[in-house]
Design a protein around this nucleic acid. Structure first.
Length: 236
DNA sequence: GCGACAG
DNA sequence: ATCTTGTCGC
């Protein structure tokens, strides 16, 4: 798949914040324009004491929840992990994997926030602008916002509020299990984002796109590690 | 100044 | 994120 180059990546944290501010007004919140058949999930897996990272995508059929395509790459993360600047660490490796993906998804789910972000420009919004596809942020923990009285039963939702506005929602994907947090990334609205995510819940807390992407990149890392002995030499 | 802080 | 075994609860 293709993507845009909107700015440099070798920037300081201060410059990164300015880039976020300059791009956030380009985020479009709207109804999904086409019917959804293929949903992509993305994730990254890190090596313990290095910046080597495995990034990958899976594409899932919304009807069967089966994987129809995937891509994986290995590269080096060049930006540190800084809360609020997460996308500057994750997006470059993800774009490399995106480049190798052969099946075009109708919507992409990211492991992190969309507009539920201090500057309303989280990972899902950032990569959405670059790949020009509808994106959804589906995070395991909160970055900003508060919510109240979320029922303990599957499919319950409650608004996620930050500074007086709704930035997403908390969704209970499984009985009596911690919720996930859904927010709009780009080219979608919250109702459609929720519908898409609900259609991909496979009985686990983490919806299938993200879950399968996580399993994929984790497996890639472990298998690569098994090929290297303790001296760092490659095995036969 | 204190507390919070996506993966 | 990653390191890790068993264990408590549905």
């Amino acid at each position: 798949m293709e993507y845009k180059e909107l700015h440099r990546w070798d920037v300081s944290p201060k410059e990164a914040v300015e880039i976020q501010k300059s791009l956030r007004d380009q985020v479009k919140i709207q109804k999904l324009s086409s019917t959804v058949r293929y949903i992509a999930g993305a994730d990254m897996s890190f090596e313990r004491f290095s910046n080597i990272v495995y990034a990958g995508f899976v594409v899932i059929d919304i009807k069967t929840l089966e994987i129809v395509a995937s891509s994986t790459i290995v590269t080096e993360a060049k930006f540190p992990y800084i809360s609020g600047l997460f996308s500057f660490r994750e997006v470059p490796p993800l774009l490399e994997a995106w480049k190798k993906l052969e099946v075009e998804p109708d919507v992409v789910v990211l492991d992190g926030q969309g507009i539920a972000h201090p500057r309303r420009f989280g990972l899902a919004s950032h990569i959405g602008l670059l790949i020009e596809k509808p994106t959804i942020g589906c995070a395991k923990t909160l970055l900003v916002g508060k919510f109240h009285d979320l029922p303990i039963y599957t499919d319950s939702t409650v608004p996620l509020m930050d500074r007086g506005e709704q930035v997403g929602l908390a969704l209970r994907t499984k009985n009596k299990v911690k919720p996930v947090y859904i927010s709009v990334g780009h080219l979608i609205d919250l109702d459609d984002a929720l519908k898409v995510i609900k259609s991909t819940i496979g009985g686990y807390r983490i919806p299938m796109p993200t879950r399968e992407a996580h399993l994929l990149v984790n497996k890639a890392r472990v298998e690569a590690g098994a090929l290297i002995d303790t001296k760092g030499d490659y095995k036969e």
